[in-house]
Design a binder for these strands. Structure first.
Length: 355
DNA sequence: CGTCGGGTAGGAGTACTGGA
DNA sequence: TCCAGTACTCCTACCCGACG
């Protein structure tokens, strides 16, 4: 009924807080605040970490591996500590202050989301009322009620609670808790397509080559030199395209890697080769923030027709890897360190400098 | 405006493996 | 044989764009 009033949204109140439009708006804002010295190529990695890296809520440490394997006492806890220590020093911060230095994009998008939720809530409550109306003669579970939460809180605070707590207060507490924990899930959009957006901006802002064109999620067959489209084939998007006078590079950007997703590397590459129409070689590279040595090793060593699948494997910062693995790395980690020293695995900044 | 299929990621259950 | 660490695989949650 009140739908006509929705047209006049205020500016800066984006429809999707974690969506592409708002992400890019926020990234622009972030870079506009940076000083010239921060925009040198060798600082490129810092922006990726400041914008995207987050503190693991269960350990308080900068996230470099799956949360369940980073718990105190487990193998990756010491590595997480090493990474956290290295990063806080590298960003000129302290281990305690580091969480405030990183995760910029998420914190900003989350506050945009909160504003959006507030704006939408009254209308949704109205709609919910209408939806529930036909059942008003029956008792139904109330959305947001969670007896488990109530019992946990009650048990923990029993001795401090002197008066009974209203149902409305419980509902609000439960709702707030649920929102807090579900917020973490939204981050996946930032380290997914958001990673591509951040890389594109970082390349544009910090790369000294002015003739470089960098774009995220372009349709493969629209790219110059990749026009051979098979009929009936669904269009393929390339994570990141870097076109310049001396480079024609297709990038697969993955914040992290899983075995099932590794298979995509080859099928994507096959599509790119089939689409190539200029009759000259192109570059295919992987940009990642994966820390698992076995996964990195496989990416570096993967072959196709007796050549490396990737011309380069690029990590946000290989110094971070070395620091995380420590002084006595185990076999696969040692192999990754070797790939770093022989130039097979390079840092983002170094790769940008080579373009 | 709502729905649906497709894309991204991290989480997490289970299978495997290699050393004591 | 046992068990801890590793690897594989599927699951879940989200956003987007096409479409009606």
């Amino acid at each position: 009924m009140a739908a006509s009033q929705l047209g006049g949204q205020q500016l800066g109140n984006p429809k999707n807080a974690f969506g592409a439009e708002n992400r890019n708006r926020l990234i622009e804002e972030y870079f506009d605040r940076q000083s010239v010295s921060e925009l040198r190529t060798h600082e490129a990695w810092k922006h990726v970490y400041r914008l995207l890296l987050w503190p693991d809520p269960t350990t308080g440490l900068a996230h470099c591996y799956e949360s369940d394997k980073c718990q105190p006492g487990k193998n990756w806890y010491s590595r997480s500590l090493a990474f956290h220590s290295w990063l806080s020093a590298a960003l000129g911060s302290t281990p305690l202050e580091l969480p405030n230095e990183i995760d910029w994009l998420f914190r900003r998008a989350a506050s945009d989301l909160a504003a959006d939720v507030e704006r939408r809530t009254p209308r949704l409550l109205e709609a919910a009322k209408r939806q529930m109306a036909p059942y008003s003669h029956q008792k139904f579970p109330i959305a947001g009620e969670d007896p488990k939460v109530i019992s946990i809180v009650t048990q923990a605070l029993e001795q401090y609670i002197s008066e009974s707590i209203s149902e409305e207060s419980w509902r609000l507490l439960t709702l707030n808790l649920r929102q807090y924990y579900s917020l973490e899930n939204k981050r996946k959009n930032l380290v997914g397509e958001g990673f591509e957006d951040v890389l594109a901006h970082v390349a544009r802002r910090t790369c000294e080559n002015p003739a470089l064109n960098v774009d995220a999620r372009q349709v493969l067959h629209d790219l110059p030199g990749f026009n051979r489209q098979r009929r009936g084939e669904k269009p393929n998007k390339v994570d990141l395209v870097v076109m310049g006078r001396k480079t024609r590079t297709l990038v697969t950007a993955k914040w992290s890697i899983r075995a099932d997703r590794e298979k995509q590397f080859t099928t994507d590459f096959d599509d790119y080769v089939a689409a190539e129409s200029d009759g000259r070689p192109f570059q295919y590279v992987l940009i990642t923030n994966e820390f698992d040595p076995a996964r990195l090793m496989r990416a570096c060593e993967k072959l196709v027709s007796n050549n490396y699948l990737f011309n380069n494997v690029i990590h946000i910062n290989t110094d971070a890897l070395v620091a995380t693995y420590g002084n006595a790395p185990e076999a696969s980690a040692a192999r990754v360190v070797k790939h770093i020293s022989n130039g097979r695995l390079v840092s983002l900044s170094r790769w940008l400098q080579s373009l």
